[in-house]
Design a binder for these strands. Structure first.
Lengths: 233, 233
DNA sequence: ACTTGATTGAAACAAGCGTTTGAACTCCTG
DNA sequence: CAGGAGTTCAAACGCTTGTTTCAATCAAGT
C-alpha cells in the first residue's frame, strides 16, 4: 500500500552496517512466530532488539516489509535441498535413504540452530497463507517432496508416477510435521517430552520404522490406488 | 478484564431471541478461523453478521468474550466422544475399530456440517495456545486419545501402558491431522484434491491401511521402545 | 394505551499503534 | 576541520479499532 518514497536505501551491500538490521530480523522472527503478524506491535520488536521505533521503518519500509524479510530469512535458515542431496548416498538402500531424509528433516525442524521460531513461523504460514507461500512451495517444498517421492517409489517398488507414491509420501511427511505443528497439545499429553536431541532421534527412528513396515507391507497391493476419484461428482 | 456490568443477560433460555447472537457467533467463527484473533476487527464481524457494532459488546462483553464463546461453540460442534463410543462396536476386531475411529475423525474434521472453519480454529489454537486450550485438552482430546490408545494396544498385542502405544498412536493421529492442518500447501502440491466426501474416504482408507501394516509389522519387535530417554541429559 | 425491560442503532470516545518528522550523532572523505 | 551520507533518537501525528453512550425501537405485561 505504501508508495515508494525512500528508494535509495541499502541496495549496495555495505560491509558491516547490518548491526541493528539483523538484530531486528532475529527479534521479529521470534515474536512473529509466537504471536503472529497482527498480534505483534513493532514497539515490542524494537524493544526486544534494543532499537528505536523508527528503525523498522528506516530499514524495511514498514511492518509488512519487515515480515517479508523475516520470512525469507527463515526459509534461508531452514533445511536446504542441497543439504539433503549431499547427505543422501546415491547407492544406498531405499530404507537407508529414507532414514537420512527423516532424520535430517527432524533435525532441521526441531533442533536446528535457529532457536525454535523457524518452524512455528512456517506452520503459521500453512494456516494463514500469505503472498509469500507460493514462492515457498515452489522453491523449497516441491524439490524436497520430489526427493521424498523418489525414495518412496523405490521402497514401494513402483515408478515415481504411480498414484500410490503421493499418499505414502504424505504418510511420511505428516508424521514428521506432527511433532512440530502440535507441540502445545503434545507437551500437555506427554509431559515428559522435552524435545531433546536424543528424544528427537528416538522419534525419527520410530517414524522411519513405521513407514518402512507400512511400505513393505503394501508392496504388491497397490491396485486400489489406481481408482482415485479425480474430480468429485 | 471488563468488570461485570450487564449480568442480567440471557440466563433463562428464552425461546427465539438468540437471533443476532448466533449470527454473530457464526460470522465470528468464520473470520477468526481465517485471520486469527488479532487479524479480525469486530466491525467486519458485525458487517458479516448484519449486526450493529455495539452488539458484540452487548452480547459478549467485548471481543475476547466473543472469542471464548466461539471456541466453545466450535468444540461443541466438533467430533464428540460419545459419537465415537456409539460408533465403535465393542466386539469388533481391532482393525475394524481403527477404521471406524479414523473415518469418524476425518469426517468430523473435513466434511462436517460446519463449513470448514471449525478445524482451522482448532489448528490455530495448536499454534498459538490461548487460555482455553487446557480445557480443550482435558475435556475433548484426552478421552479421544485414550480411546485410540486402547485400539492401538490391541493391534500391537500389548498392554495399554506399553511405551510403544503412545508412538503408534501419534502415527495414527498425525496422518489424520495432516490433511487439515496443511491444506494450503497440500492443495498447491495436489491441485486435483478437492476434499470431496469420496476423496476423504479414500484418504482415510489409506491411513487405516498404512497404520495396520505398520502395527502388525511391528508386533514382537517392540523392545526398543522400552529405552525411552525420559528426561534428556 | 402506558410502562418496563430487552435489544438495536448511529455517533462519539479514548487508547493503541504504525508511521513520519526533524534534529542529533556517528563515521568517512576531501 | 568542513561537508555529507548513513544511522539513531525522542517526540508527535493520524488513522485504526475496541468500547461506550444514549436515544430509538420493539415485545410483552398491566
Amino acid at each position: 500500500m505504501s508508495t515508494a518514497k525512500t528508494d535509495k536505501t541499502q541496495e549496495s551491500g555495505h560491509p558491516a552496517e547490518q548491526d541493528t538490521r539483523v538484530r531486528l530480523l532475529e527479534a521479529a522472527g521470534e515474536v512473529f512466530a509466537e504471536r503472529g503478524f497482527h498480534g505483534v506491535q513493532i514497539r515490542d520488536i524494537c524493544a526486544l532488539a534494543g532499537a528505536n521505533i523508527a528503525a523498522v521503518n528506516y530499514h524495511f519500509k514498514g511492518k509488512e516489509g519487515l515480515y517479508r524479510e523475516v520470512l525469507k530469512y527463515a526459509h534461508h535458515c531452514a533445511m536446504a535441498v542441497e543439504e539433503l542431496q549431499v547427505a543422501i548416498p546415491p547407492n544406498a538402500s531405499a530404507e537407508q535413504k529414507l532414514g537420512v531424509f527423516v532424520h535430517t528433516f527432524f533435525r532441521s525442524m526441531l533442533s536446528g540452530g535457529r532457536p525454535s521460531w523457524n518452524g512455528k513461523l512456517l506452520a503459521r504460514e500453512m494456516i494463514e497463507p500469505s503472498a509469500a507461500l507460493d514462492d515457498l512451495v515452489m522453491t523449497e517444498i516441491t524439490p524436497k517432496f520430489a526427493m521424498l517421492r523418489s525414495i518412496v517409489a523405490e521402497m514401494l517398488g513402483v515408478a515415481i508416477e504411480h498414484p500410490a507414491v503421493r499418499w505414502f509420501g504424505a504418510s511420511v511427511i505428516s508424521q514428521c510435521l506432527f511433532w512440530e505443528h502440535n507441540k502445545p497439545v503434545i507437551q500437555r499429553l506427554y509431559p515428559d517430552l522435552s524435545y531433546s536431541d536424543e528424544q528427537i532421534r528416538f522419534i525419527a527412528n520410530h517414524v522411519v520404522r513405521t513407514c518402512t513396515f507400512a511400505m513393505v507391507g503394501a508392496r504388491g497391493k497397490l491396485d486400489d490406488y489406481a481408482t482415485w476419484p479425480e474430480s468429485h461428482r
